[in-house]
Amino acid sequence: MRLLWKGLSSYTVIGVANTLIHWQIFFLLSVAAGLSQAISNLTAFCVAASFSFYMNAQFTFAASATVAGYLLFLLGMGALSLGIGHLGDVWQMHGLLTVILFSALSLVFGFLYSKYVVFRERDQ
């Protein structure tokens, strides 16, 4: 069980910085620019993900930051981001609840997705 969560602490520290970037961009786009929560959440995710993908590749998973891995990460986690933003729009959730929900889900699912799909060790 310990091996399953190895690297979660550094992933979490990077995730805090990622969250600050994400939330600032989300609120700028949704409140100041008046965009939908779905578009705001997806755009904010893409910007913050660029930072966290590189940092996690280097410091959490000691892996190469490849274009294929980056696109895989953006596709999988971007779908989660867009989906949560869409639910925020449909259920008319407050924007703060939308980003809190996404941040919590992306911590757990993002870590497991990164560890076992994006940065998994491949046989040479």
Rank of each mutant, 00 (worst) to 15 (best):
residue 63 A to N: 00
residue 46 C to P: 01
residue 45 F to S: 02
residue 38 A to N: 09
residue 13 V to H: 10
residue 13 V to T: 14
residue 62 A to Y: 08
residue 108 V to Q: 01
residue 52 S to V: 10
residue 40 S to Q: 06
residue 95 G to M: 10
residue 4 L to H: 08
residue 13 V to W: 11
residue 33 A to N: 09
residue 54 Y to D: 03
residue 39 I to V: 14
residue 81 S to N: 02
residue 28 L to T: 14
residue 15 G to S: 07
residue 27 F to Q: 11
residue 41 N to C: 05
residue 40 S to R: 05
residue 76 G to N: 07
residue 76 G to S: 09
residue 56 N to A: 04
residue 79 A to I: 13
residue 93 M to I: 08
residue 98 T to E: 10
residue 45 F to L: 06
residue 95 G to L: 13
residue 46 C to H: 02
residue 44 A to Q: 01
residue 118 V to H: 02
residue 54 Y to T: 08
residue 13 V to G: 10
residue 76 G to R: 06
residue 109 F to G: 02
residue 62 A to P: 00
residue 89 D to Y: 01
residue 119 F to A: 03
residue 62 A to I: 06
residue 39 I to T: 14
residue 94 H to T: 08
residue 52 S to R: 06
residue 116 Y to W: 03
residue 100 I to D: 00
residue 35 L to W: 15
residue 116 Y to K: 04
residue 27 F to S: 13
residue 90 V to L: 10
residue 87 L to I: 13
residue 22 H to A: 04
residue 35 L to I: 13
residue 67 V to K: 03
residue 38 A to P: 05
residue 116 Y to S: 03
residue 47 V to F: 05
residue 56 N to Y: 08
residue 1 M to R: 09
residue 101 L to T: 15
residue 42 L to M: 07
residue 120 R to Y: 03
residue 70 Y to P: 10
residue 93 M to D: 01
residue 113 Y to W: 15
residue 27 F to L: 14
residue 82 L to Y: 09
residue 4 L to W: 11
residue 13 V to Q: 15
residue 21 I to A: 12
residue 73 F to M: 08
residue 14 I to A: 13
residue 48 A to W: 01
residue 16 V to H: 04
residue 76 G to T: 00
residue 3 L to W: 03
residue 17 A to W: 15
residue 24 Q to S: 14
residue 53 F to E: 02
residue 100 I to Q: 02
residue 17 A to Y: 12
residue 30 S to R: 10
residue 95 G to E: 11
residue 46 C to D: 00
residue 62 A to S: 07
residue 82 L to W: 08
residue 21 I to R: 09
residue 7 G to M: 08
residue 93 M to S: 09
residue 47 V to M: 06
residue 19 T to L: 11
residue 37 Q to E: 15
residue 9 S to K: 11
